[in-house]
Structures are given as C-alpha cells and as structure tokens.
C-alpha cells in the first residue's frame, strides 16, 4: 500500500532531547537501498535513542534536524505510519504484551501493513475479522517463516514476548521483520541474547530478506561476531550523541581490538 520499493533513509543533523536532556547532538547518516551500515558506540552514547526517534516514539523531543524517507520527512508521522512506509525497528528491549498472543499480534500487524484495515474501513465491513488477512492464508505464511527461523510453533499461542527468554524475544523480532517486509530495518542489538546457532539462523534470515527486498540495514551492535554474518559496507562510530567517524568494515576490527578510548583522543569528543 504505502510502501514503495527501495527506500533511502536520510538523517540530517538530528538533535533530540529526552526529559529535558539533549541526548542526540547532530546525527547525520544516510542508508541507501541494499546497503548495510553498522553503528557501534559505547553504552549510553545514544544509539537506542536514535532508533526510537527514527521510529517515532513519543517520548523523544526533536529539537533540530530532519529525517527523510525517500525525500519525505518522517517527523510528523506516527509510528504506525512510519512502519507502513517501510521502516522497521527490531528493538533492543522488546516489550511484552500480556493477553495478546504472538499469532494475534502478527496477524494484526501484517494485515495493517498490507492494507486490510483500510479496505475494511472503506467498505464499512464491521465484522471482527474483516480487517484481517484470512486465517488459513496467514497461518500458512507464518508457519513457513517460523520454520525458517527454527522457532517452535508453540510460541504463536503464547502472549507476545511474555516470559520469552532474551534470545527468544530477538528471534521473534526477526520473525516480525520477515512477515512485515520492511524497506529499511534498524536492528538494535539484535545479537545480544542469541546463542551461537541462533545468531547464525537469525543473520541468515536477515541476509535473505535483504536479498529479497533490497532492504537498507542499520545494524547497532557491540560485537564483531554479528558482523561476521551480516557484513556491513559502512561502519560508523557513535559517540556522545552523534556519528564521529565512518569507514569501511576494517573499522570493526580496530574497535574490537582497541575499544573506544582512542576515539576521544582522535576526534576530540
């Protein structure tokens, strides 16, 4: 519906305040279709603040700058509108929603993304399931995706993220991504909590989707191991609320070896 094919995400000199305190201090970054960008930086430097801001979390107050998707500003849009334009955020800390099963949630989300809700509203169809993808059709699709991620189907009947282990939550995030087929995906520490096999399975899933969809990727991580699977062309160092240095994949190894101490000295931040 609102999704077009490939999308470019452009962040220009973005300044953001949280509860009165400036956390993002001029972020500039562009992610083009099919590109993979890694964003690495110390704890508390503002990486998750950036990802939530991009997705439109109401808590973050934008005090300057711009965020564009294919040249159109996202800043006035609600999170669901951003999602429907093709933006996806795999969250560092996925929220649990008791009472709503993973299956119910996935069906509602996929239906919204594919315009079923709009169609039902337009035709005035008030029935409970009118705004949803037909059950049988969706069940098949979910089963296929859940199989590829080697997740147990029993998760579908559990409440969303409720009691999921850390790694299970991260897998469920990628399951959502697979079903919602975004154009730009931000993965905020998706690797944390994943065991060695899961890391490989999840990474393969991400790579497959990227190949299928020409998706642009912004991968936030602390560790090289994820980037051995999801290979970035661009690596950015995020420090004290902004990108202070960008380079190629060789930067990952330098960070892995030396940490962040040199960043301060070299870039004077």
């Amino acid at each position: 519906m609102e999704q077009t094919l490939a999308q470019t995400l452009e962040i220009r000199d973005l300044h953001v305040r949280v509860e009165g305190k400036e956390i993002l201090k001029g972020v500039t970054l562009t992610v083009r279709p099919g590109e993979t960008h890694a964003l690495m930086g110390p704890n508390g430097s503002g990486k998750s603040t950036l990802s939530y801001t991009l997705m439109g979390h109401p808590k973050y107050e934008i005090v300057g700058g711009e965020v564009l998707l294919n040249g159109e500003s996202l800043l006035a849009l609600s999170p669901d509108e951003r999602a429907r334009r093709g933006l996806f955020l795999a969250m560092q800390y996925p929220v649990s929603v008791p009472g709503v099963t993973l299956y119910t949630f996935l069906r509602a989300a996929a239906s919204a993304m594919r315009g079923y809700g709009e169609a039902a509203r337009r035709s005035g169809d008030q029935r409970l399931h009118a705004h949803l993808i037909p059950a049988r059709e969706f069940r098949q699709e979910v089963n296929a995706e859940i199989g590829k991620l080697k997740m147990d189907q029993a998760f579908l009947n559990r409440y969303l993220n409720e009691g999921f282990s850390g790694g299970e939550k991260k897998r469920a995030e990628i399951l959502q991504m697979a079903l919602l087929k975004p154009r730009i995906a931000i993965l905020d520490e998706t690797d944390s909590g994943l065991d060695i096999d899961a890391l490989r399975i999840v990474s393969e899933g991400v790579n497959r989707l990227q190949a299928e969809l020409g998706m642009g990727l912004l991968v936030i991580t602390h560790y090289q191991r994820l980037l051995n699977y999801i290979r970035p062309e661009h690596v950015h160092i995020f420090y004290n609320g902004r990108v202070v240095h960008s380079a190629g994949p060789e930067l990952v190894e330098k960070l892995e070896a030396q940490g962040y101490d040199w960043v301060q000295a070299e870039f004077g931040v």
Binding site: M55, G56, S78, D80, A83, V97, A112
Partner: peptide, 22 residues
C-alpha cells in the same frame, strides 16, 4: 505497549483495541 504495536504498523486505535482485548 502502544508504541510497540504501532511500530509494527498497527494504527493507534487498533492497537488500543488489541490491548483492551488482551
């Protein structure tokens, strides 16, 4: 919770309904 549901494309009003049902 509302943000999480909205971030997956579910409109605010529908997200509220899902939470009420949940």
């Amino acid at each position: 919770q509302l943000f999480y549901l909205q971030a997956r494309g579910i409109a605010r009003y529908d997200a509220e309904q899902l939470l009420v049902q949940g």
